[in-house]
Design a protein around this nucleic acid. Structure first.
Ligand SMILES: [Mn+2]
Ligand SMILES: [Mn+2]
Ligand SMILES: [Mn+2]
Ligand SMILES: [Mn+2]
Lengths: 222, 222
DNA sequence: ATATATTTTTAGACAAGACTAAAAATATTT
DNA sequence: AAATATTTTTAGTCTTGTCTAAAAATATAT
């Protein structure tokens, strides 16, 4: 008997889920406010509502964590988001930096049948266009061995499997550098001064990556 | 500078558009209330808001009609609705009676680029799975010569090009009778008593259609 | 341990979209 | 032309999701 939630409620649950992925412990009001780009007061209001609906466990001044139901809902919204992003890129020909905003709306369309059929139509993809794992219908994520590009040593190389930053500006920057999911990146030099890297992308010409960029690239060592 | 509208506002504009298609003159408060399944008071409230935003021309006690901007918006929502329905049937394998509810949500997704790409992906379809014309990006509809099945005489036949009723129960009824868009329907007998028809569908076995059904079938004489 | 700073909650308001009940305007009968 | 019926609007409330300003709780610094 899954209750019908508003877009806003779903977005709050997703925010708590994502914040909780990092911190592991209960999520602060201010953290959620930052994620949701709203005021702390609004967050407190919503926490009471979500707690009433038993979607979160919330204690005044202590923060919130998802209940099993809340967690299931959040995962389902993430699943929908990532399946739609995959559709937009693979079928409609969007570029990976264009799809997040649209998927933010599509993720709230309410139809299990639709998602089942979309998943099948896409061939049951396991990762979205940013390399993020797509949870299965029962909420399980495909785990993957991965590390951050900055952690590689000189002469080591990796395959890009994901990005930590999803902003359009960052993804467009990668486009310009000819870096995409699946690109092979070989470390050639590291500056002692600013940690910037000279790398070769897929055996092509050398390019320079700032540490800022390198920290946001997830690779599988190759 | 098209203002961003809520789902509700878009639905009201669509309701006025559809009601106006039939009556041609200004649309009554009660008519809109029936379309929107809401109270007359709520409609009056909304009429004031839409008039303020110059999406409709509204006069107290006289009813509403769409402004050029309102008409453009309504047409665009209908275009999105019908393109999504086409996607659901042609690409995801839904049946024609399953798609309306889902399209009611999808029609509010806000991205011109998305609709342009979806249209292209579907091969620029001119009619949706119910035979309704899909307006072009600039709001033009493909006109078509059509008539109601009931108007045919004995021994005449037609190709089903559309349905006037979109309810799931009606469409499922047609499924059972093996009637689909493109079916050829030949009139064999008409009852004087209740106007029910004996017809043969695509050269198959005879079936009986009540006048209620026949009135909702749009055909091209063949 | 006390003072100060930060975080979080409460209080009070507002806009959107809905409702019911009552009043006002318009339409239809007689 | 009245009387009656129907339609539409107004008035007053409610819920959701938001806000600002002030109060309360917790954390940090002295
Ligand atoms: Mn995204
Ligand atoms: Mn993504
Ligand atoms: Mn429809
Ligand atoms: Mn349709």
């Amino acid at each position: 008997m899954t209750q019908r939630l508003t877009h806003t409620e779903e977005n709050y649950l997703k925010a708590i889920y994502k914040a909780n992925e990092k911190t592991k412990s209960a999520v602060n009001t201010n953290t959620i406010a930052a994620y949701m780009n709203t005021s702390a007061a609004s967050v407190t209001d919503m926490m009471k509502k979500l707690a009433n609906k038993e979607l979160i466990i919330y204690e005044r001044y202590k923060g919130a964590r998802l209940s099993p139901t809340g967690s299931k809902t959040a995962t389902s919204v993430i699943r929908k988001h990532r399946l739609w992003e995959t559709f937009l890129v693979q079928k409609l020909g969007f570029s990976w930096e264009e799809v997040h905003e649209i998927a933010e709306e599509l993720e709230h369309i309410n139809s299990d049948e639709l998602i089942t059929k979309l998943d099948e139509y896409l061939g049951f993809p396991k990762y979205d266009p940013h390399g993020d794992p797509i949870p299965s219908a029962d909420g399980k994520f495909m785990l993957r061995e991965q590390m951050i590009l900055s952690q590689l040593n000189i002469a080591e190389s990796g395959i890009l499997v994901g990005v930590k930053n999803h902003e359009t500006s960052f993804l467009s920057h990668l486009n310009k550098l000819n870096i995409a999911l699946g690109s092979s990146i070989l470390i050639k030099e590291r500056s002692d001064f600013d940690k910037s890297l000279k790398v070769s992308v897929s055996e092509g010409a050398d390019v320079v990556l700032t540490d800022m960029v390198a920290k946001n690239l997830l690779i599988r060592k190759s």
